[in-house]
Structures are given as C-alpha cells and as structure tokens.
Design a binder for these strands. Structure first.
Length: 586
DNA sequence: TGGGCCGGCGCG
DNA sequence: AAAGCGCGCCGGCCCA
C-alpha cells in the first residue's frame, strides 16, 4: 500500500491512500496533525509514503521520533526519470513535474542554498503564509512516475533504492557518527602544536614555513618570504634555484633534490589537516560527540552521494582514530572489496573474468594472466590491478598499454563492455547503469566542438571526444557500483530494523516534542547506520549485537548482488571489522 | 569586500 | 607527447 502525504498549513496536511500503480484507492482526507497521522499509519500499515522530498520532510518526522520503513521520493525519482529521458538537470519539483504533465510553463527549482518557504507541514508558526503541498498534484505526478517506471527495466528498484537512501541520509545526519572531540584535539595538538589563537598558523606549521623560506634563501635572498600556501611563489622560488618545475604537486616535488622539498611535503600534509579538518572544522561539524554532515543523495551524476558540508566523504585516514564507539557499543566497519572491477565482471558477463571474481582477491586471481618479471616494477598482481584501472578509467600509457592488450585477449567481454561505453560517449550517446541511472548528455558546446570534423586525433575537439569517452567508460562501472551500494544500504537498513528491540508505542501524541511512535521508532540500544562512503558502511551497535549486524551486512551484500545481477557467479565479498575505533578497522 | 577560478589534495 | 574516473574544500589570486 502507498499513501500520499501533503503538508498543509499549521502542521496539518492531507493523506490519500493509493494503489501500487498510483490510482487513488480512497478519498483524500485532511488531518490536523500530519506527524501524528503518519505515525499512526506507519504503525498500522507501514505503507510506502509518497511525498515530494524526503530531505525536506523527514527530518521533522525524525525530530518527533517517527521513523518510516519505506517511501517514494517524488523529486529524486523525477530526477532519475528526466535523466533517463536525456533531460538531465531539468526542474524536478512536484510543481515542475505537474507543469510538464499539463504542457504548461515549468517553474525552475529553487537553488539548493536558498531555504524553502518552509512548508506549513510541521511549521511552528501557523501564522506564516507558506504554500502548502497540493495532494492532487502529488497523486498525479506519482501516477505518471509509476507509469514511466513500469516500462523501464530495473527502474522500480532504482526508485525504491534512491528513496531508501534519502531516508538513510536523514537518519544518519540525525544519529551522527560517534566522534571524540578529545581524540581529535589530541591528534591535532600532537601533529600541529597547541591550538593557536586568532588566525595564526599553528606552531609546527609556522616553524616549517620559516624553514622553507630559509631553505630558499641562498637563491631567493635572505629576506624573501616564500609562502608555502602559494603555488606561484613556490614555483618562482624553485625557478630561482635553477629547478624549474611544472607544478608543486607532491609527486613532482618528490622527484627533485632540494632541501626545501621534504619541508614542503610535510607542510602540505599538515596544512591540509589543519585547514580542512582542524579545530575550526571540529567546532563546526561535531557536537554532542557526533559528526553530523549534510549528505546529498544522488548528488553525483553516477548516483554516488555527495556532501554539502562537513566533508564527511573526505575524512583523512589519520582522523579515523577520533571515531570511537560509545562505551558498551561497537563499530561494525564493512567495506566492499574491489567493488568496481567485480561490478564490471558481473555487468559484462565475462565468463573468464567472473570465474576469477568468484571469490577471494580479484587482482590475485587475475594475476596469472600477467607475468611477474621479477626485479623492480610491478608484480603480476600489480599489473592486473593497473590493467583493470586503466580499462575502467580510460588510462593506458606506458606499461599500461601492454597490460591492456593482455586484458583484451584474456577477458574480451569485459574489455569490450567498457570500450563500447567509451564509443557511445564519444558519439554523444547516453549510457546507463544496471538499474537505469543515466549519464548526462553532452553539452551544446561539446557538440559544436566535436562536430567540426577534426578527426586528426589532435586538438581540442579530439580531447573533448576522448574526455567524454573516459567519462562514459567509467560511468557504467561507477554508477552500477553505486546501484549496488544503494541496494546494500536499503537492505541493511531493513535488516537492522528487525534487530531492534520492539518499539515502545506512545499513544495519541500530537506534539512534535514528544516521540510519536512509528513502526521503526527510535529505540535506545538499537544498531544504527552511521556512515556510508561509496563502498563502505559503518554501523554503531550495542556490542552484544555486533555478530548479528555482521551477518546482516553479509546478507545485504548478497541480496544486492542478486537484485542487480540475478545468478551471476561474481561474488561481492565484504571485509568486515568489529572495532572500538574506526582506525582499528584495517 | 565578495565572487569566481585555480592549484592542490583529501576520500572512494 | 601526454593523458586516465568521480567528488568537496581550502587558500591564493584576480577582478569588479
């Protein structure tokens, strides 16, 4: 069963029960307290909730202690359908979708940084005149989406997985990643020196900066300051020292012999930590022992999540020691091993490749196709890995050229799969993930540039062609990996709910301040998904449930494999560690 | 002073 | 000859 929910003024709203295909199954009914009504229905029927935007509505339900099992997020699904139709980026609001259905002018979406005139729904101030959701439009747009989805293989699963992802993202933000500010501060102090006051550099960084200027003094002059934060100044300083370099990237610096190099490398590393994840970051994003970043579901074209604050997907490995389970709790850290090449094996149906991917270390299994020439350079496993990465990313220079040839000979179907995706991209066509997530079409500028007929293989037109080829080549793999990860996440979330102790039902609450119950309402002592990073999840769980959580992760990974690839022989093993702190996971 | 681009590097 | 995929965020730097 599905129920459409529309926010009305003053915390009220409208519900309407729907059949699976979106046909109304009962009249719409107004409810005075939408949160309470949703909680009641969730308890009674656990429907799939049909609403405009989980990101906007669900946090308020969570505030009231209400969790729901399933939803259909109209905006996210609209985005997916538009993308599939080659209309990437068109407005996705219910109002826009409704206008498209009626052939009327389509209103633009609100820029994401502009706060919505906050719905009415859950609004504390009933006096405020915010526009309410329109239940009629919601029902009509949903029905149209269901008709479209029914004609697209895999899309029903994609829509459900994307919507479940939105629920998880909101819940993870609310629950937060356990984060020890004390550990974080201790690490910063250990590496950088005490926290400085006013915008000063920490002691250790200032010391390095001074020594860097000194190291350049013989060529740049004794009184010249070289700001290590300025690539331009560094380039100039090296040029003065007779060492012209194309950039100040770490791998370039490592190749030259100059006393400033080790200082610069150390400075870069520490400065990065200080500016990106230092004390200011700690103050901003960690509170109450939890990191609460803003996740953006579907924020990457491939279906990966992005963040719009908190940098949760770029947390440096050294900081993992600050991620500490609560006393009596544990972190179940689970990582999909070699996900993308396994996805390629399953996508391509390459028999030889799939057999190699059936278990264990994929690269090692492939390595007998490559030979180990002893001394120096890559071993056979390293060659296998480089060949695969080159195939999936569109690289292939130097040694990789030979390795790609080996890959092509031994695993022709896998090789051809990504080659075909690259050709499609170069021809301006669209490519799709397993479940139907679709890459954006090329821009008008790209079409103009590449239609000029320059087939010399050189010049900007050829570069643009190859660039799009690399993009679509990678898209099919990365986006299908994202499909798999979303399916895993949804499955795991459902399985964790079952592990939770039965919720304590609280009857008749109509206040947003009191927990309003709900089938999967917040229960202390329940395992929670607290982190998701492309191919890795962390569950924070009472230590006594860690074994069950581990089993749930394995089961979810297998379910995701089955949902995407049916009876493929390719395995998707999870590497799982039960630890007290994230840093101990591997 | 604020916006936007760039170099560089963190994560996958 | 050189080049691989996807992000977010920071400081420097240029410009209005």
């Amino acid at each position: 069963m599905r129920i459409a929910a529309a926010a009305g003024p003053g915390g009220g709203g409208t519900l309407r029960t729907l059949a699976e295909d979106g046909t109304p199954a009962a009249p719409a009914r107004a409810v005075p307290d939408l949160v309470a009504a949703i909680a009641d229905q969730e308890r009674a029927a656990a429907p799939r909730w049909v609403w405009p935007s989980t990101a906007r509505l669900y946090p308020r339900l969570l505030d009231a202690g209400v969790r729901v099992a399933r939803c259909h997020d109209l905006e996210l699904v609209e985005s997916l359908l538009l993308g599939h139709a080659g209309r990437y980026g068109e407005p996705r609001s219910v109002a826009a979708a409704w206008a498209r259905l009626r052939g009327e002018p389509v209103p633009p979406d609100r820029p994401p940084d502009e706060p919505a005139p906050q719905p009415s729904l859950f609004d504390d101030d009933p006096e405020r005149d915010a526009p309410a959701d329109d239940i009629g439009r919601i029902v009509a747009v949903h029905a149209a989406q269901q008709r479209a989805i029914a004609g697209l293989d895999g899309f029903a699963l994609l829509a459900a997985a994307e919507s479940a992802g939105a629920l998880v993202a909101a819940e993870m933000r609310r629950d937060g990643l356990p984060w020890s500010a004390a550990e974080h501060d201790a690490l910063l102090t250990e590496l950088l020196g005490p926290r400085p006051t006013g915008g000063l550099r920490p002691r250790r960084l200032q010391d390095l900066a001074d020594r860097i200027s000194a190291a350049f003094a013989p060529s740049s002059g004794p009184h010249t300051h070289v700001n290590p934060d300025s690539p331009a100044q560094i380039l100039k300083a090296f040029a003065s020292a007779g060492l012209p370099i194309p950039s100040t990237r770490a791998h370039v610096l490592k190749r030259i012999d100059h006393p400033a190099v080790p200082l610069l490398l150390e400075y870069k590393e520490l400065s990065r930590l200080h500016t990106a994840h230092g004390w200011a970051w700690l103050d901003t994003w960690v509170s109450g022992g939890r990191l609460r970043p803003e996740y953006v579901v579907g924020g990457v074209v491939s279906g990966r999540w992005a963040t719009s604050g908190g940098g949760a997907l770029q947390i440096p490995r050294v900081l993992r020691r600050a991620v500490v389970a609560d006393p009596g709790w544990a972190l179940v850290v689970a990582d999909a091993a070699q996900l993308e090449p396994r996805v390629l094996a399953a996508l391509a149906g390459d028999r030889a490749f799939a057999d190699a991917a059936a278990h264990g270390d994929l690269y090692a299994a492939l390595s007998d196709a490559f030979h180990d020439d002893g001394a120096g350079g890559l071993d056979a496993r390293g060659k296998a890995k480089l060949a695969l990465l080159s195939a999936m990313y569109g690289g292939g220079t130097g040694e990789a050229v030979q390795l790609l040839a080996v890959l092509k000979r031994r695993f022709p179907d896998a090789f051809e799969y990504v080659e075909a995706a690259a050709r499609a991209g170069e021809n301006g066509r669209l490519v799709r993930s397993r479940l139907g997530r679709t890459c954006p079409p090329p821009s008008a500028g790209w079409r103009e540039l590449t239609s000029a007929g320059d087939d010399s293989g050189r010049g900007t037109a050829a570069q643009a062609l190859r660039s799009r080829g690399r993009f679509t080549r990678n898209f099919v793999v990365q986006a299908t990996a994202a499909d798999w990860a979303l399916a895993l996440l949804g499955s795991l979330r459902r399985r964790l709910t079952v592990l939770q102790p039965p919720p304590t039902a609280i009857q008749g609450s109509s206040s947003a301040r009191r927990p309003a119950g709900g089938t999967a309402s917040a229960a202390p002592g329940a395992p929670r998904l607290v982190f998701f990073q492309h191919d890795e999840v962390i569950v924070h769980t009472p230590a006594g449930l860690a074994a069950e959580v581990t089993a749930a992760v394995h089961a979810a990974a297998d379910e995701a494999r089955r949902l995407l690839f049916g009876d493929t022989p390719v395995a998707f093993p999870m590497e799982i560690a039960v630890v007290g702190r994230y840093a101990d996971a591997k």
